[in-house]
């Protein structure tokens, strides 16, 4: 042991410290990319920092926050738009995903092909698909209105009208992610034990009864995970809205994500954009905490 070469001693040292050395790179990267930037964001939210000028930012205490709460009309509106989009698309994805999963929870010919085709919306680049949808939804040249008239429905202005822009965006989001919620719920359904279902059938329970009293409670962990993931994801969506409506028309779909982007990189109000960012973070945190509390109280076994 005494005559070990430096290389061997190094290896020896690595072995003894393996716990730290193995996790160190991840910790360093996450500290640099998460912890410090978050601190920097919160700090900037108390200043009047601008992106355009190199003048030293001045500490202005809570001025950004009072501006956003009391002076900026669009803040509350965009908060509402953000929540509307997230809740609307989450509910849509979960209900549709559940319906499809129940419908497909059987063996049939062509199952593999079907599953493969349903994966396409998840895989395809969202910006490219948003572009495709915006072409389809074009009120003048888009084919969506044409097909709808075929089925006997009237046309819509889709993303070009303040009244229909949000439902249109939610529709694209639901189209994008329902296959995923379906795959997760289907995996859940297939993993359930058979006994309770057989017992219920013997007892003469109706299909609706089986669903509400057995299937839903047993699937609860899956549903909770999806609810949390989809809701948080919905609050973060940027590219779909940015490409399809750009926040318009007349700012009717300008969610917090777009408002922050616009304030920071359009108006170069970096300090103010940071204050908005802090609010968005806060909203996401609050919603996650409420969901976790709700689960502990209401849904514990």
């Amino acid at each position: 042991m005494n005559e070990s070469s430096p290389a061997e001693r190094l290896l020896d040292y690595v072995d003894r410290q393996v716990r730290w050395l193995f996790s160190l790179p991840a910790i360093i990267v996450m500290l640099c990319l998460f912890a410090y930037p978050l601190f920097r964001l919160i700090w900037a939210s108390f200043t009047n920092e601008l992106l355009s000028s190199s003048s030293k930012p001045v500490f202005i205490k809570l001025a950004n926050f009072s501006r956003l709460f009391f002076e900026d009309d669009h803040f509350w509106r965009s908060l509402w738009i953000t929540l509307y989009f997230a809740v609307g698309s989450t509910v849509g994805q979960l209900m549709l995903g559940m319906a499809l999963a129940l419908f497909l929870n059987r063996q049939f010919k062509g199952e593999a092909t079907f599953r493969m085709m349903l994966m396409f919306p998840i895989i395809a680049t969202p910006v490219a698909m948003s572009l495709v949808w915006s072409m389809l939804m074009n009120p003048m040249m888009g084919h969506l209105n044409y097909y709808l008239s075929w089925l006997g429905f009237g046309g819509s202005l889709w993303a070009s009208d303040t009244a229909t822009v949000m439902p249109s965006l939610i529709f694209v989001e639901v189209w994008h992610w329902t296959p995923m919620t379906m795959l997760v719920l289907l995996a859940g359904l297939k993993s359930l034990p058979r006994e309770p279902f057989e017992a219920a059938t013997v007892d003469g329970a109706s299909k609706a009864q089986v669903f509400t009293t057995i299937t839903l409670p047993l699937l609860q962990p899956y549903i909770f995970l999806l609810l949390l993931m989809r809701l948080v994801h919905g609050l973060k969506v940027f590219d779909k809205i940015f490409v399809i409506s750009g926040g318009g028309p007349n700012r009717a779909s300008e969610s917090l994500n777009l408002m922050i982007f616009d304030q920071a990189f359009g108006a170069t109000n970096f300090g103010y954009a940071s204050a908005l960012g802090v609010q968005l973070l806060f909203v996401i945190l609050l919603i996650s905490i409420i969901l976790f509390k709700f689960r502990q109280r209401k849904w514990s076994y």
């Binding site: 990319l33 998460f34 930037p37 978050l38 973060k236 940071s274 973070l281 996401i284």
Partner: peptide, 9 residues
């Protein structure tokens, strides 16, 4: 954490 809030800093 929303991407946009990380992007700013």
């Amino acid at each position: 954490a929303p991407w946009i809030t990380l992007l700013l800093p």
